[in-house]
């Protein structure tokens, strides 16, 4: 592990992104637009007094889900390009360490993810008046963590795709089941046993649970900390597995 090489990899990935302003705009703006959509969807709901708006529940979960989806896609495509173009093979003949590459990637996209989370959370709070009990800082933190989760899983999945078309097809396999089972549509406690067990081994469930904890409690709970640790463990496991897919020697 060499910090200088990791940092230069991170800068290189950011420079590549800088050359593509349209992608930057999409990364930063799309989550806010989707939030607006959710807001208008529930605009006319009639609520009993003291019942929280559906937007406060769904919009909040969206803040954790968007970064995961976007970063999964961006990362798996970018890494796949690196594998196809031969630059990865070339890099693996240089002194650069695999960890420098992976963490450089993870760091660069985490920076983008943090910006995205700030824009989306800011929109939810200031424009749509999102009301939750906990601190917005925790929401941003969880958003960034799910984004890094997307990066880690994207790096891993890129190894199993040989074309960009295949890489995109991994989204329904890896991402959509997690969205369905994370508690957004049906509370996890109300699912049948098999689905609940499945949901328990999916990292996004913990991120969403963490957001619900922030929404319900003014101060961070121990359950929130557990959620954060579990998601972080999935990130580390994903990065480690991804590093195993970077082979210096091939057939």
């Amino acid at each position: 592990m060499n910090v200088a090489m990791m940092w230069s990899t991170c800068l290189r990935v950011l420079r590549q992104l800088k050359g593509d302003p349209r992608s930057i705009a999409l990364i930063l703006v799309v989550p806010s637009l989707l939030l607006a959509l959710v807001y208008w969807l529930y605009e006319n709901e009639i609520l009993a007094p003291s019942v929280p708006r559906t937007f406060d529940r769904v919009g909040l979960m969206m803040l954790g889900i968007f970064p995961f989806v976007v970063m999964f896609l961006v990362t798996s495509i970018t890494m796949l390009r690196e594998r196809i173009s031969g630059t990865l093979e070339r890099l693996l003949t240089t002194p650069v360490h695999k960890a420098d590459l992976l963490f450089g990637y993870a760091l660069a996209f985490s920076i983008m993810a943090a910006l995205q989370a700030l824009v989306a959370t800011g929109t939810a709070y200031w424009i749509f008046g999102l009301k939750i009990a906990g601190n917005a800082g925790w929401v941003v933190l969880i958003s960034v963590l799910t984004a890094v989760l997307g990066v880690a899983l994207g790096l891993l999945c890129s190894a199993f795709a040989t074309t960009e078309f295949q890489a995109v097809q991994f989204m329904p396999v890896v991402v959509i089941p997690q969205i369905l089972l994370c508690g957004l549509f049906v509370a996890r406690a109300q699912m049948n046993g098999v689905l609940e067990a499945l949901s328990n081994i999916m990292p996004l469930s913990y991120a969403v649970h963490g957001l619900q904890e922030v929404a319900g409690h003014a101060d961070p709970t121990s359950s929130l900390v557990t959620d954060l640790v579990v998601v972080a463990a999935f990130v580390v496991a994903g990065l480690l597995l991804a590093s195993l897919t970077l082979r210096r020697r091939t057939r």
Binding site: R12, R15, Q16, G19, D20, S85, G86, T87, E89, R90
Partner: peptide
């Protein structure tokens, strides 16, 4: 054989 550099840099 195929140039392996970053075309977007």
């Amino acid at each position: 054989q195929a140039p392996s550099v970053y075309p977007d840099l």
